[in-house]
């Protein structure tokens, strides 16, 4: 039990997927202009990552490993991820048109969110069991959502600040996320690797 809890904590905060591993920066920069959209994006990504982690584990252990098809790993994982994203996209479009519009191009682009593929591949690399794989996926996604939320809050305030012209927009956002990353370094060493 303790082990699982630590895994969750470690993936969500200490080895945060965005701020420590620097995965999934594209949606982090793209969908962090409002807290509501960020929350929607976080939930959608959480759904996809968790689903993809589970599906990729099954794929790896029931298909790729038994038939020695390791060379198809990336290809087949992407296939599964793309399908999961398509499914999510349809579901969001039906259930929440407003969120669908505010997420815009970033919704189908979850497919290319390197955090999703990264988590699936790291699962294989670490040799986690099914439950741990799912937990690792969920924890990473949780970390992604937390950072997205915090960052969106900061950017909402940033939008009200009188940032010098040279820094307004992306530069200030990048400096902000780097400072956020600096703050997250405080978590380092909390759990011995």
């Amino acid at each position: 039990m303790n082990e699982y809890l630590l895994l969750l904590l470690s993936t969500a905060l200490i080895n945060n997927v965005v701020l420590v591993k620097f995965l999934g920066l594209c949606p982090t920069m793209g969908v962090s202009k409002s807290v509501d959209a960020a929350l929607g994006m976080g939930l959608a990504t959480t759904f996809v990552i968790t689903l993809a982690a589970a599906a990729s584990w099954m794929l790896e252990h029931w298909l790729l490993a038994p038939f020695e098809l390791g060379f198809l790993r990336i290809l087949s994982f992407i296939l599964v991820i793309a399908a999961a994203v398509q499914f999510t996209e349809m579901a969001i479009r039906k259930t929440s048109p407003a969120l669908y519009e505010s997420l815009g191009i970033y919704l189908p682009l979850i497919t290319t969110n390197c955090a999703v593929l990264g988590v699936a591949l790291l699962n294989v690399q670490q040799g986690y069991g099914f439950l741990k794989s799912v937990l690792f996926g969920f924890g990473s996604a949780l970390g992604f959502t937390i950072v997205l939320l915090i960052f969106a809050g900061l950017r909402e305030r940033l939008a009200l600040a009188s940032v010098p012209a040279a820094f307004s927009g992306a530069p200030a956002a990048f400096i902000t996320i780097s400072l956020l990353s600096l703050a997250f370094m405080g978590f380092s060493g909390l759990i011995p690797a």
Binding site: L179, F187, L190
Partner: peptide, 17 residues
């Protein structure tokens, strides 16, 4: 438990965020 002996600076930055 952390890697640093003193944490108040990190804690302040994190809660600033």
């Amino acid at each position: 438990w952390g890697g640093y002996p003193e944490g108040i600076a990190f804690a302040v930055l994190l809660f600033n965020a």
